[in-house]
Design a protein around this nucleic acid. Sequence first.
DNA 1: TTGAAAGCGCTACCAA
DNA 2: TTGGTAGCGCTTTCAA
Lengths: 339, 339
Amino acid sequence: MKTISLQEISTALKVSKSTISYVLNGRGDEKRISINTQQMIEEYAKAHNYKPNPLARSLIVGKSNMIGFVLPNIADFFFARITRSIEKKAMQSGYEVVFSSTGEDKEREEKSIQSMLDRNVDGLIIASSQKNEKDILRLTQNKFPMVLIDRKYPDISTNFVGLNNIGGITMLVEHLINMGRKKIGFVSLNMDLLTLNERLNSYEETMKRNGCEVKKGFIQQLEYNHTDNDMERIIKIMLSKSIGVEGLIFSTQFLAADGIRALNKMNIKVPTDMAVVSYGHKNDFDLFKVPLTAIDFPVEEIGEKAVDILLENMKDINMKKEEFYFNTELIVRESCGSH
Amino acid sequence: MKTISLQEISTALKVSKSTISYVLNGRGDEKRISINTQQMIEEYAKAHNYKPNPLARSLIVGKSNMIGFVLPNIADFFFARITRSIEKKAMQSGYEVVFSSTGEDKEREEKSIQSMLDRNVDGLIIASSQKNEKDILRLTQNKFPMVLIDRKYPDISTNFVGLNNIGGITMLVEHLINMGRKKIGFVSLNMDLLTLNERLNSYEETMKRNGCEVKKGFIQQLEYNHTDNDMERIIKIMLSKSIGVEGLIFSTQFLAADGIRALNKMNIKVPTDMAVVSYGHKNDFDLFKVPLTAIDFPVEEIGEKAVDILLENMKDINMKKEEFYFNTELIVRESCGSH
DNA sequence: TTGAAAGCGCTACCAA
DNA sequence: TTGGTAGCGCTTTCAA
């Protein structure tokens, strides 16, 4: 299990540790170590499969070759895909990734960040709970290399990679209107996330701009941990005579799937009785009873871009903050009627 | 960014580092440090939010409070869910998790394992590529705490948590037979994984046991990175007159979704023209055009059980190897006809 | 009841 | 061109 240490190869080769360290760190020429010793050392190291102890090294140089990724939940497919792309991209530059799920909890997010800092990560990618202004501010002020993804703090200027929510929702609303629906409901989560708020605001604005009234009851917000019953309840409300919604926008792909499940159970015909669209895409939307029209967006790309910016930031502590928004794409299927 | 160090609190309090270390590690009474100094130290530490540097500590004690999880791909929903459950369970015992995706690649798996070992992880959970016998053997021989999940080496005795594949496939075959289908095809991946082989063998045995012939062409294996066309091609083959399959078992949930996609495209009616079942479940199978009958299994539980066994193993290096198989559950929907 | 000092494995400075 | 040595922040042995 143990790997050979600098000390051991030093005594074996009768060469000082420092010399070996220089050579193995590619500073042999710079330090003008003779070509012979260099070769000897390198051969021995390779032959004995020497790997420097990253802990010892990290302790002294203050770096770790690790990037930390703090996210709400690794079991969320959206974040799992981002994680993979971060990992891939980071690996290409010789970095490893440590991650930690926070469950949208402030304390756990604080702990995760601190723990990664303690482990000397060289940079941080954070999909924050948006309840942890303190740490984000602290990191920013200390010029610690960091990029936020998906979740942003409006009052703090940071690197950020996210989605063009406004464009996406606009497409959705206008698609529904084009399909002849004017009374459009909006189902979201009651979490205070900027990304969700942007979607809601964009819905309201686009409705107004198109001369569609947003009646009381058109907007419904569910708990993050809602049940099937909760979903049925709010759909029932929106279908009631006084409200009479004819089209439904779900603000996340998970809500959309839950919504379809409820509609099926309540025997409400899509798209005849109710047109449905989803902000966010799932792999099997095309296989649904009524294939679902949805906004898709680049997921892997978010992670890749975040790593790009982070690496830049690691090179240049004082770099200008960069914000990047990916555009979304409307995938039209059959859930709003024939097209 | 920097946190206070032992040295700093030592000079501030005029107490030696060792004393402080003892107290802060809960060995104050054992070392018979006076209650006064103990209190003083603890208060000061709390007030200044002292956190021992995990790197320095790890370097000396050879432990890290981290569990390593090596897996094929974090973007695979199955593994993402397991990762989350491992993380949750580990956290309850004060451990953090580092993970690494290997992409089913032997070299990358070796590297990941070595890197985790170098970082002094206290134990390893591995969903191996099954191409890395060498490391698994080495770890076993060195009595390094480890548990394998999902992927197993038949020739090496290790801790293991997996699925009762045989039971699951048996249910699937017999369900199809009960629904009146005798000519049943089996679609799998051409990867040499024990878990996949078990499913294939179980299919053949159950067919035989029930007096159903497994004709040439009944068994089809696709590349891991197959295209939609590949899937259509093999379905076409199985549907050809000479073979004439009436029911299809897909050996993973991903294959099943791809298969349904192909059947839809080819305009083959499920279940009339073709009954379909999936070994493995996806969240939205119930929302499909024809809700899909599938084998479901506990996913989170695999991770939890793995952590349980690993913690045991970390406590007792010489513990008897434990193998655990979770039973699967048949969820009957409509893809094999009315029930 | 407490402290001094060694040492984990490495890097980096200063000497030689 | 190379080596000695200090020190990263901590734990642990031995001495006081």
